[in-house]
């Protein structure tokens, strides 16, 4: 692992001697708060596993993960995931309209529903010019990913863990969507840790880059 940081912000995550099976073996890693951190590396290097460890979808075998100076095991896992939220690589789409798909994230996490204007705003941020009443089953793979991104924006977590959020988009659209998305997150004071294979996206958006190497 090697890191390059250009953000002068406090540590959000600190990982010390973290071992998970034979996939992850990190001596020390810091992730800054309020910045966009890109996770890069070859396939099988453990990028998704690292995000899952940060999201507490898996428990480390040994070592320590601190979130804002507190070991993550000390948080209630559900409350923690509402602050440090992960978006899986395959977009989670429910049967029904786009509106339902956006509101369902709030319902799943026990939050009140958003207004139609707020829903339209997030769709505009992810560059999805679709009616809220449109059936989500008719959307393409890339459009479904953007619905999932828009849903995540409505949840307003402290940390966004994104696993190749725009993998099915062409490079131009990907840059457009992610630039706007990341600007919105930063404006709200959020932090992003994102897996990506796009060199252009890393060059344009990353404040910190973490390269994971296959063991």
């Amino acid at each position: 692992m090697k890191g390059k940081s250009k953000g002068a912000y406090g540590e959000m995550f600190v990982l010390e001697k973290v071992v998970y099976k034979d996939i992850i073996n990190l001596d020390y890693l810091e992730v800054k708060s309020g910045v966009v951190t890109c996770l890069v590396g070859e396939s099988g290097a453990g990028k998704t596993t690292l995000l899952r460890l940060l999201n507490r979808m898996k428990d480390i075998d040994s070592g320590k993960i601190l979130y804002r100076d507190t070991p993550i095991e000390q948080f209630d896992p559900i409350a923690y995931r509402r602050k440090v939220t992960m978006l899986s690589q395959t977009a989670l789409i429910f049967p029904g309209t786009i509106e339902h798909n956006l509101q369902v994230g709030l319902e799943l996490t026990g939050r009140p529903a958003c207004s139609l204007a707020e829903l339209e705003e997030v769709l505009e941020i992810v560059q999805l010019p679709k009616a809220l009443s449109e059936d989500s089953e008719t959307l393409s793979g890339g459009e479904k990913q953007r619905v999932a991104l828009a849903r995540l924006l409505l949840l307003q977590p402290e940390v966004y863990l994104l696993d190749e959020p725009t993998a099915t988009l062409d490079e131009e659209t990907e840059l457009k969507v992610m630039t706007r998305f990341l600007a919105k997150v930063k404006e709200a004071g959020g932090s992003v840790i994102m897996i990506t294979h796009s060199t252009k996206l890393v060059e344009q958006c990353a404040d910190q880059t973490i390269m994971l190497k296959k063991r």
Binding site: M86, T90, L108, T109, L155, P157
Partner: peptide
């Protein structure tokens, strides 16, 4: 499994997922 995990990642309680 994938759908349930995706809901948990967002912060859904297991019962809801």
């Amino acid at each position: 499994r994938d759908k349930i995990e995706a809901m948990l990642m967002l912060g859904a309680a297991p019962k809801r997922a």
